[in-house]
């Protein structure tokens, strides 16, 4: 599953644009990831300009 470092995130929405599952939403200055619909393609992790998203070891809920 994907974890967000909120102290790094600049809420630009690049991750939302590349998510094929529509699992990410940019709410004002807040990224929300819906773990249920995430397909673990990691496109969001790759595109982030600052590396605020990471694959975490926690199992998918």
């Amino acid at each position: 599953m994907i974890s967000i470092n909120r102290y790094k995130c600049g809420y630009c929405g690049a991750c939302v644009a590349v998510c094929p599952a529509g699992a990410i939403e940019l709410v004002e200055a807040w990224i929300e990831i819906d773990g249920e619909s995430c397909v673990e393609c990691n496109n969001c992790v790759k595109i982030c300009p600052i590396g605020a998203l990471e694959v975490s070891d926690e199992p998918k809920k």
Binding site: C12, G13, A17, P20, G22, E25, C48, I50
Partner: peptide
């Protein structure tokens, strides 16, 4: 904007492939 949802909700695939988006700072 870039994070558009309206198109997706209407059934249009707006997902950008990594080769079709610049990541910027």
């Amino acid at each position: 904007g870039v994070e558009s949802k309206v198109g997706r909700w209407a059934g249009i695939n707006t997902t950008l492939k990594p080769k079709d988006i610049e990541s910027g700072a």
